[in-house]
Design a protein around this nucleic acid. Structure first.
Lengths: 240, 240
DNA sequence: AACAATCGTTATCATTTATCAATGTGCTAC
DNA sequence: GTAGCACATTGATAAATGATAACGATTGTT
């Protein structure tokens, strides 16, 4: 089976045999990284682009007062920005959430491959625009959604993203996030996350049990969240 | 004087005469757009990239319950994403805040110019990464900063961005945002924005008077905000 | 098996922010 | 000049969320 990076790009547009083998080559150097280790830290000078092939990672920032804000989750197949290399330093850190498998790709190499593989190029562009859309969706959530809507919305997002890369089995998928991590992602306190999760459990919308999210009632959850999957850009552009 | 788009790109890396005239050509078709008119709406199919040469615009989203969340401000020189054209539809709307001057650039044309002008290409990449950094900074603000810190932080951001393109005169700059708009950007209610602005005025940090922001005490304001300008990527990357 | 560490759960109380309501102020159209 | 409108301001009250603390459950380590 193709790795998660390939699967993700495929979900953004079809790839041919030739594209796939190029991507295989790019990710051949994958290495294992233990849980909770920083891949790169705020202030570091960015190096090559890296790609999460397995496991989860998170972008985050620690504030002067010691609090943490998680700014994005990287699921298998997700990559950090193509052009970070042009920046003097990182404005945030990236850390594995659980043990992960990570490949690194020199940005010059990636660019050359994209030049020769328009399918890959298009898929990468879409992936990047989707990442930006996700950032905007988080802003919308934090600004204008209630805490229960916010939690439900994040769960819908993660569910869809997980399903896209084949990580959903039955009605659930593995969610390696503690309530503390959820709180830091959603701008809430851990206790309040706990309350909200209890509410969602009580209304039979969803449930987290031993690290797996079970969405008993996807429709109800999406309704609570006011979830509109448009920003994940699953629809393909039609030819003119 | 070169237009705001050129000035902005220059602030991200030096351009030569040749680059500048290319950019002049790209933006020659600018047109005037009245205040509060949508340049593109959620659900629309994206067309060419556009660039704000003068005036302000905002990205925003209206939620099912009628509330609005502003997700970004576009100042003179700012452009919408280079590759939006590859998406099936917009996931948010963009609207002028005040009367603006807007140029449109076909994405194919822009790509060709970038291919022949590496300086422009590098500046565009940095601009885009800065936009993403700004999105992340907004998430951090909404998640982990108090309302007064949040307001102060946005003001610091806008001040720096305005100063970058030469819009700061003396100790202030034009801020064409109502308290309602600020509330919709900051995830607060207008009344609360008003109270916070009063606090900031009382502590002599800053003041908004008839559409101009006056930062009496920039140091105090940045301190309140916990502002770290790193994410705006003003530092240039040094050669190896 | 014993222990420590982390995480989840619940209750209570404090704080922040939203909501509602009323009034003021400056601007535009007629 | 005045009516109408959008926006700013302020106060009173309610609702949502945070802070703290205590305890139980789970997991990993020795």
């Amino acid at each position: 089976m193709p790795n998660a990076f390939i699967r993700k790009l495929q979900s953004f547009g079809s790839l041919v045999e030739n594209d796939i083998s190029a991507l295989q080559g790019l990710t051949a150097n994958a290495r294992n990284v233990p849980a909770r280790s920083d891949l790169i830290r705020e202030g570091d000078r960015p190096g090559p682009m890296f790609v999460v092939l397995d496991g989860w990672a998170q972008r985050y920032k620690i504030l002067p007062n010691g609090t943490r804000q998680i700014v994005a989750f990287l699921l298998p197949g997700d990559a950090c920005d193509l052009h970070v290399g042009t920046l003097a330093e990182m404005d945030h850190s990236i850390q594995t959430v659980k043990a992960a498998r990570v490949a690194t790709i020199g940005s010059g190499i990636m660019e050359r491959v994209m030049d020769h593989h328009p399918n890959i190029q298009r898929a990468m562009y879409r992936a990047q625009l989707t990442d930006e859309g996700t950032l905007r969706a988080w802003i919308v959530s934090m600004g204008r959604r209630s805490s229960i809507e916010r939690v439900a919305h994040l769960m819908c997002e993660l569910y869809l993203r997980a399903s896209r890369i084949g990580l959903v089995h039955g009605e659930g998928f593995e969610l390696p996030l503690s309530q503390i991590a959820l709180a830091d992602a959603l701008g809430m306190t851990p206790v309040h996350v706990n309350r909200v999760l209890k509410d969602l459990r009580t209304t039979n919308a969803m449930e987290v049990r031993r690290g797996t999210m079970i969405i008993a009632n996807p429709v109800a959850l999406a309704q609570i969240a006011g979830f509109d999957e448009n920003y994940l850009h699953r629809r393909m552009r039609q030819a003119n």
